[in-house]
Design a binder for these strands. Structure first.
Lengths: 110, 110
DNA sequence: GCCCTGGATTGATAGTTGTCAATATAGATG
DNA sequence: CATCTATATTGACAACTATCAATCCAGGGC
């Protein structure tokens, strides 16, 4: 699917079933407070990369749970990760966020 | 919570826990293909209002199931409904969509 | 009042999800 | 190689969700 076809907004035309399935899977990834905070921590970091070792202690959750949420964010195409020695660094993929924002933005004129 | 405080973007600063809970509940409502299509059908309608009797037959699902999804969209603040005689008409609440779009939009400068 | 129709609610059930404890894997270091 | 540390994976379980059939409620028409 083209990432940014014209007038992809929800309010522009009824969404096709297959597009709805794909979009919903990304929104579902955002539908959890822990994942939203993780994504926000990653996306708002100055250098653009955050070590998992900084993310995990920010929550009152076990390490496997955080790892699980990071995996879902990865599968949704919202973040990416790189191994640097023993550590793994995550960074945001802004294209996916922008796409969602475009989909949600109400058309200017009616 | 102020609906539109300055720099509410995900990528601007780490999201507070309570804001994450609230935002996640709305994204969760979008995290289902049926609801996404319902919302799109409602938001893209010319007159701004759609009768449930037009929404239900567009899906291969039972009437209670559609009613359930509409309820979740309502509870998320994404749509609103009005009774007109025997029929119930739904319309979109663009403020909520705009808020989400703002949250997702990547800040222009870094 | 009685019935019909549109829509919401209830109750039940199969499937999914968030969480943890336990374990595995990958890289660094001695 | 042995060991330690940082993440990921597996397995299990309680909580939640999407769905349907059955039922209820609200309005309109007779």
């Amino acid at each position: 699917m083209s990432t940014q076809e014209c007038c992809a907004a929800l309010a522009a035309a009824p969404l096709a079933a297959d597009q709805a399935v794909e979009l919903a899977s990304v929104f579902k990834a955002l539908g959890d407070p822990v994942r939203l905070r993780l994504l926000s921590m990653i996306a708002s970091t100055e250098g653009g990369e955050v070590c998992v070792c900084e993310l995990t202690p920010a929550f009152d959750l076990s390490q496997p749970t955080i790892s699980h949420h990071l995996k879902l964010l990865r599968q949704a195409g919202l973040v990416d990760c790189v191994r640097r020695g023993t550590w793994v660094h995550y960074r945001a993929l802004p294209a996916t966020l922008d796409r969602l924002a475009t989909v949600l933005r109400t058309p200017v004129a009616s």
